[in-house]
């Protein structure tokens, strides 16, 4: 009755075949990473040296200067004293609890990741908005990037580039980029048809339409996407610490393995504080630049 066992057991492929597939794929990828790993690493070298430079800059500058510059930046972006004081107090508390260096490392990598995600994500989003075909091709990839467990795509990245900052950055960017792409696409598609038609009717070139109508009008949506991207990048910090990215994630990882509750909590809170800083500052910057959306302002 062996030939009827498919009724009770799933007729899966034999272990041997599966092993064969795995061996071939793993082998092919290993060969690929051996053959091209060095070139790819060399390609990312400028990024690595920038990362190192930026991190050292934040670490080697006296803390009060960094604090001052950050507070100034916050004020410049948000024009709000309240926010400025809040950020300074949180940073002082972080420093007081001995997490200054790790916070600076996380800050540097998050800044670079967010920047990369925006620089790559917005053009991809624009492309998606312009062509339905591009949208139908890219959307499934975004779905995969957002749902695939982060550990899974850490494997090939580590195989290719080893452990360190660059694979960390790549993993964080892959994880965090979908919102900015999706919301750029959505924002541009939601621009009122008649407004766009008006621009065309007055002789706007496609570039003028993009930069003077579509992007400005999509900006609130795009800013929401950037915000999400920042939050997701911060959430990824702990996972990235597994492949040797230094920062607030590493003490958290250590706390998990050793059950250090307080250490984990403090570092977790520091990540939360960073997240809130990024969020409030980017939100109020967005609000300030979108003054036409405020119904009550008097034209100033």
């Amino acid at each position: 009755m062996a030939d009827q066992s498919w009724l009770t057991e799933f007729p899966d492929m034999s272990r041997r075949e599966l092993l064969g597939i795995r061996k071939t794929l793993d082998g092919a990828y290993r060969d690929f990473s051996r053959a091209y790993g060095d070139q790819i690493e060399a390609f990312f070298d400028p990024l690595l040296s920038f990362l190192v430079w930026f991190e050292n800059l934040l670490l080697n500058t006296p803390w009060w200067l960094v604090l001052g510059v950050l507070a100034g930046l916050v004020y410049f972006m948000s024009r709000s004293w309240k926010l400025c004081v809040g950020v300074s107090v949180s940073l002082l508390a972080i420093g007081y609890f001995g997490m200054w260096d790790n916070t600076m490392r996380t800050l540097s990598i998050i800044t670079v990741c967010t920047f990369l995600a925006i620089v790559i994500g917005i053009p991809v989003g624009i492309m998606m908005a312009r062509s339905n075909r591009a949208q139908s091709i890219i959307t499934p990839f975004l779905d995969i990037m957002q749902t695939m467990p982060a550990f899974v795509y850490l494997i090939p990245v580590v195989m290719l580039l080893g452990i360190g900052k660059i694979p960390g950055v790549i993993a964080v960017v892959i994880y965090a980029i979908p919102p900015v792409i999706r919301l750029t696409n959505l924002g541009i598609r939601l621009v009122p048809h008649e407004t766009l038609e008006a621009a065309t009717a007055f002789g706007a070139t496609p570039t003028q339409r993009l930069f003077r109508v579509q992007l400005p009008l999509a900006m609130p949506t795009i800013m929401a996407g950037i915000n999400q991207t920042i939050m997701m990048a911060l959430a990824m910090v702990v996972i990235a610490s597994m492949i040797g990215v230094k920062g607030l994630g590493q003490p958290v990882l250590k706390s998990i393995t050793n059950q250090y509750f307080t250490l984990g909590l403090l570092n977790g809170l520091a990540i939360v504080a960073l997240a809130i800083m990024f969020d409030r500052v980017s939100q109020s910057y967005a609000k300030r630049t979108q003054k036409h959306l405020r119904g009550d302002h008097n034209g100033k």
Binding site: E194, T195, T200, F202, G203, V213, H292, G299
Partner: peptide
Amino acid sequence: LIQFRRHKMSMVFQHFGLMPHHC
């Protein structure tokens, strides 16, 4: 065509079609 639209014809829209982000 762009030159033609810029200099020969202009258009007024039913729902105005103004740029909300410009004064």
